[in-house]
């Protein structure tokens, strides 16, 4: 699904993130090439694909977490509400306040549960009632009942699934517009996964959610749109596989009537 920049500007009103010919390289080797994709506002979009196809790389590019990797370079444009995030005058810290992220491994701060939530809000100059914010964030991440009696205990004392929901609550607390999730359930058991998925459905009404997942069933369960990435060895290149976007569409269409054969093969479990 390739769009020229004219049609992207037409879609701006209901597009949250627009990837415009994005190529990301580690050193001189491209990891993922020529991605065009418009991610709609207020929906859950899933990135699926085999390992090494660059879906996490693309996800990290959206809130400029790739800046932390020295050799990582990006060409093309990443537009957030029409603003080019890789413009020289853009402050990546401000970008991350608007586009929050939940990681593969739960990574609560070694502070109390309360402080885990309050930290982000405080450094972003939150003026309101902190107790209320903590309670609301934890409630929206569906972890309030489990930790309301131990807000002063360390965030690390929670179970893996609870930690991950705490991390989601921490992200919600800074009131971002977009929440990125990089395989948020891959380190969790099925029950915790189910709870996180429920949380994601709750979030949909207020946020744009982009989730990278290895689990096709999960993509089918939670997402409204799905982008399928694949990786292929490029002709005339000495490097490894290079990822690219194969197909982006409604989740239903991706799983039931994909246009590309590779998508069909992947979602039916023939490879990946």
């Amino acid at each position: 699904m390739i769009q020229n920049s004219q049609s992207t500007s037409n879609m701006q009103n209901n597009t949250s993130i627009c990837l415009d010919n994005v190529t990301i390289s580690y050193g001189s080797f491209p990891a993922i090439k020529n991605v065009f994709c418009s991610i709609p506002k207020g929906y859950i979009t899933a990135f699926i694909g085999p390992s090494g196809c660059g879906k996490s790389t693309i996800l990290r590019a959206i809130n400029r977490m790739n800046d932390l990797i020295d050799a990582c370079t990006l060409t093309g444009r990443v537009l957030f509400e029409g603003v080019d995030l890789y413009n020289k005058r853009i402050d990546p810290v401000e970008v991350r306040r608007k586009i929050g992220m939940v990681f593969q491994q739960p990574n609560p701060f070694p502070k109390s549960i309360y402080e885990n939530i309050a930290f982000g809000a405080r450094i972003n100059g939150y003026q309101g009632n902190m107790d209320e914010l903590v309670e609301n964030s934890l409630k929206r991440a569906a972890v309030w009942d489990e930790c309301k009696d131990k807000l002063n205990e360390s965030g690390c004392s929670l179970s893996g699934g609870q930690q991950q929901r705490l991390c989601i609550a921490r992200t919600i607390a800074i009131e971002p517009d977009v929440i990125l999730m990089d395989e948020p359930c891959s380190a969790l058991d099925p029950i915790s996964t189910l709870k996180i998925e429920e949380t994601m459905h709750e979030l949909k009404s207020n946020y744009t959610v982009i989730i990278v997942t290895h689990n096709m069933q999960q993509a089918l369960r939670v997402s409204d749109f799905t982008a399928f990435f694949n990786a292929e060895v490029q002709p005339n290149s000495t490097g490894g596989k290079v990822g690219y976007l194969v197909e982006f569409n409604n989740t239903e269409k991706i799983f039931n009537s994909p246009k590309q054969k590779a998508t069909q093969d992947y979602v039916s479990g023939k490879f990946g």
Binding site: E94, R96, R97, G100, N107, F119, N124, C167, R170
Partner: peptide, 23 residues
């Protein structure tokens, strides 16, 4: 992971170091 977590909630590098990694 801790650094990434802190940066992803909009903390600057300075705040990440003084409030998260140094403690």
């Amino acid at each position: 992971d801790l650094r990434k977590g802190s940066l992803s909630v909009g903390a600057s590098r300075f705040i990440t170091i003084t409030k998260v990694t140094l403690p």
